[in-house]
Each structure stands twice: as C-alpha cells, then as structure tokens.
Nucleic acid binder design. Sequence first.
DNA 1: GTTAATTTTTTGTTAAAACAATTCTAAGAA
DNA 2: TTCTTAGAATTGTTTTAACAAAAAATTAAC
Lengths: 151, 151
Amino acid sequence: MKIEDVIKSTVPMENSKKIILNVMYTQNILAEKFNEILKPYDISGEQYNVLRILRGQKGNPANMCVIQERMLAKTSNTTRLVDKLLLKEFVTREVCPENRRKIEVTITQKGLDVLKELDPKVTEHEIAFSKNLTDDEIVVLNQLLEKYRNQ
Amino acid sequence: MKIEDVIKSTVPMENSKKIILNVMYTQNILAEKFNEILKPYDISGEQYNVLRILRGQKGNPANMCVIQERMLAKTSNTTRLVDKLLLKEFVTREVCPENRRKIEVTITQKGLDVLKELDPKVTEHEIAFSKNLTDDEIVVLNQLLEKYRNQ
DNA sequence: GTTAATTTTTTGTTAAAACAATTCTAAGAA
DNA sequence: TTCTTAGAATTGTTTTAACAAAAAATTAAC
C-alpha cells in the first residue's frame, strides 16, 4: 500500500515528507511483526537486542557502556533491560574486579537457548520482507537509507 | 555511517537483516531529531500527528475512529492523545448529535497556530534529510520502501 | 418491545521510554 | 593525604505504549 493510502491523504505530498512517513510506517510494520515473534517468549525487542549483543561477545562479558553503545535506540535504559533479563535468568551480572565501577554482563546458557530457538523465526521474518525485492533492489535500499540518514 | 559501524558489528551480515536494522535505525534518527523540534512546544510526535490529521479535516470534526485509522502507529490510544490535546486547548471534543456513541474532535485556533509555527521547522527537518539524496534517489527510496513492507 | 449483538469510546493496568538526579568508584591535582 | 573531577551505573519520576476490559449507544433479531 502506498503511504498516501495508509494515512488516507487526498492531497499530493512532497517526496521529502513521503520518505519520512514511509520510513516511520515501515518501521512500525516491521516492529509489529517482530513483536509477534517475541511475544510467546515474553521478551521485548530491546531485550532481544541486548541478548544478541551479548551473544556477539562470544563468551566475553560486556559492561553496560558497551551494551549501550551497540544498541540502535541510544536512549534506552540498559540497567533496566538487564534487570529484566536477570529475572528471566538469561544473563548474569557481576562487578568487574579490575574496575569496580563497571558491571560485567554475560549471557547464560538459558539465554543462548532462547536465542537459538528464535534464530530460525527471526531469519524467516527477515527473509519474508526482503523477498519483496530483488537482490539488486535490496542493495540499493540499504545504500539509500544509509545515505539518507546522514546529518 | 554504515549500519555495521552503528552497531559495531565485525562479522558480515545478510542484506535482509541489514535492511531491517537500517530501517529501524533511520527511524530512530528521524524521530530523535523530530522530537527536538517538538520539545519546546511540549507535544509528542503522536500528538502532533493527531493535530495534523485534524487540520487535514478542513474545519470538519473527526471522530475517534477516523483519527485512529489515519495514524501511522495503529496501536496508539487515541482517547488519551486527545485528552492531552484538550488540556492544552489545542482541540475541542463534543458528542456527535447524530450518533451519540461518536465523539467529534475539532482543532482549535490555538491548535492551528501552533501547527503554523511548527510548519517551517518541520519542512526544514524533512528537507535537511532528503537533500542527502538526488531527486531520482528520493523517488526510488520511496518506491523500494513501499514495495519492501508489503506482506 | 425486549433481548442480543455490534460499534465506538473510555478506563484500568502493567510495562516500557525518556530524562534527570544520585550513588559509587577511580584517577588526578594540590 | 585530601579534594576535585570524571566515569559508570543505578534510581526516581513522569510520560507514553500496549493491551484487556468495561461502558454507552445503536442496530438487528426475534
């Protein structure tokens, strides 16, 4: 559906405005579908994101700063996200012995297990959308988005 | 900045995953900048959205259903958004005489004034991003996003 | 004409986002 | 040493999002 139909606009719209609405709306659709996948596992998108970052550490712990700077949404409150993951026993949290200001967060086996169970569903989700485009179009879309958002 | 640098990923990533991250991250950037514009006026992005929809009615009131279906985020709670706008006297709310289940929401002059004051700043924001792309690229980006999100 | 079903909106509740303020630790300067 | 500054994480508070449940009015069925 074209973005004008989504917001039921009758008057023509500048392309510069259209892009913004298109990005916003597309993100909404993506996030909605993704939340459906996560829902049975009772974790939020942000929590999933933290788990992914921790798995990417390959056994090494990550402190709060590191997690924060790798998140897409830079405003999220990492402490609280880790709190939630701790309750579910998906991560452990320890004070860093070298620098006691820092906290070492590590993903547990239980956390790895839930990620592993999610992996195929997440991949399926990603592919489901991208199959609307050709390989070339996918590359172009990535390039244009990267170019567009530079400020 | 390329999305791999944003999330500080060292391993290569599927393009299908890259698109999702790119859309998510771009939306984040856009929303962040937009919120900066709105902040001095003490309205949220969603509230702004409702005001825009009401102005688009050109004097006619809109009921809750109509507002809801024109919003980008279909899950937002229109009643509460209108509550907030009422407190700021940007809208009025009346029971529809033909069908007393319905509520007629109308933008006030004060609401129109704040939109008018915002208009140039919003346009500037839209153009600031789109000037990173050529006219052709803008058109292509819009087309690709519309094609991509179809499920 | 009364009951049931549907539409439209509101309310309630819990979780999450946003942002400021605070605590605790480390490092460096006087 | 003691004081100050900076770094890292937590806590507190206020909004907002998400979703379920309830309320009110209308329409349809019997």
